[in-house]
């Protein structure tokens, strides 16, 4: 088999995930790494929508939160097995995304941003106010993830699960993008009318990618709920949605590995900056601003281009 760029990237990611724990001195590192991996999975899904299909969503954390709450509610109140609850959550969230997508994705630019923002805010409000079901602002306690009598515990095991999930997600995303479906998605971004006149039902593809990214978010949400043990409406807040978009943009839109890199950087950076205490947020903001000024296409596409130019020149 011929090794192409994406394959090499996938192998490199696998190697990094496998070897990184050797450098972890304590379980706090695992904890941070799991959050970073979860965010990376979310961003790979969101990148399909934003980076490849060129649609914006400012409510993506809402789908993540819904997945988390469906899992939390079904496992604690109805005693459903976690895996089944995860699947039910994915189906529910996918269905909701499907129903919302048609009318919403007719909109473009700022209007689409506003509409998705609205979805996120409505989900956030419902999670806050329907306390009888969601526990309201106090949150909801969720049990361990257990499958067929076997319970997943400890940061180390969660790390491996999240790592495998990320590799699977990256693999699926790379496959999709390099297929006729992925080309149709990218064509929607490139020129909607150009795609339509050769037979691409652009509306259908926009709905499809919206649903796929929402399902990814729901699955991560379900796992997050079990790992964290406590979920609060804040995980579906506007701030979290914006954070996810920032990760995708920082790492590089329309780049699966860019989404991973962006997610990892923005998940880890706050922990590295804690020693700056009060200035943490300002420094984080400065780093993001300067990255976008000097690498408007995002980190990974810019670095790849530099490498290629160097390869071409020598």
């Amino acid at each position: 088999m011929r090794l192409t760029g994406p394959h090499i990237g996938l192998l490199a990611t696998a190697a990094i995930i496998a070897l990184l724990p050797l450098t972890f001195p304590n379980s706090y590192y695992y904890d941070v790494a799991v959050s970073a991996l979860f965010n990376a999975v979310l961003c790979v899904g969101l990148n399909l929508l934003i980076g490849y299909a060129g649609q914006i969503s400012l409510g993506h954390a809402g789908f993540f939160a819904l997945g988390a709450y469906v899992s939390g509610i079904l496992t604690t109140r109805w005693n459903l097995p976690p895996l089944l609850a995860l699947v039910v959550g994915a189906v529910l969230v996918g269905t909701l995304a499907f129903v919302l997508a048609r009318p919403i994705l007719r909109l473009k630019g700022h209007y689409l941003a506003m509409a998705t923002l609205g979805i996120g805010i409505i989900i956030f409000i419902v999670l806050n106010t329907e306390a009888w079901l969601t526990g309201g602002p106090d949150g909801l306690t969720v049990n361990y993830l257990s499958v067929a009598g076997w319970t997943l515990k400890g940061d180390r095991n969660w790390y491996w699960l999240a790592g495998i999930l990320l590799l699977t997600t990256v693999w699926l995303s790379l496959n999709l993008i390099d297929s006729a479906v992925g080309r149709a998605l990218r064509a929607v971004h490139g020129s909607e009318v150009g795609a339509a006149v050769v037979g691409v039902d652009t509306g259908r593809y926009k709905v499809l990618v919206f649903v796929i990214s929402a399902v990814f978010a729901s699955v991560v949400g379900s796992l997050f709920a079990h790992r964290n043990g406590l979920i609060t409406p804040g995980i579906g807040s506007f701030f979290h949605s914006v954070e996810l978009v920032a990760m995708v943009v920082l790492g590089g839109m329309a780049s699966t590995f860019g989404a991973v890199v962006g997610a990892v950087i923005l998940s880890v950076l706050p922990h590295l900056l804690t020693s700056f205490e009060d200035y943490e947020a300002i420094i984080l903001g400065m780093i993001m601003m300067s990255t976008m000024i000097f690498m408007p296409k995002g980190i990974v596409p810019t670095v790849l281009r530099l490498l290629r130019q160097r390869g071409g020149a020598s």
Partner: peptide, 28 residues
């Protein structure tokens, strides 16, 4: 109305979309 986010040959491959009749799961 070129898809400037794609390579030249990919632009033409989108043109064959109808004849590939792509499905999501096999593509994933």
């Amino acid at each position: 109305q070129i898809f400037f986010n794609m390579t030249a040959v990919e632009n033409v491959m989108v043109g064959a979309h109808l004849h590939l009749n792509p499905r999501v799961l096999p593509s994933l």
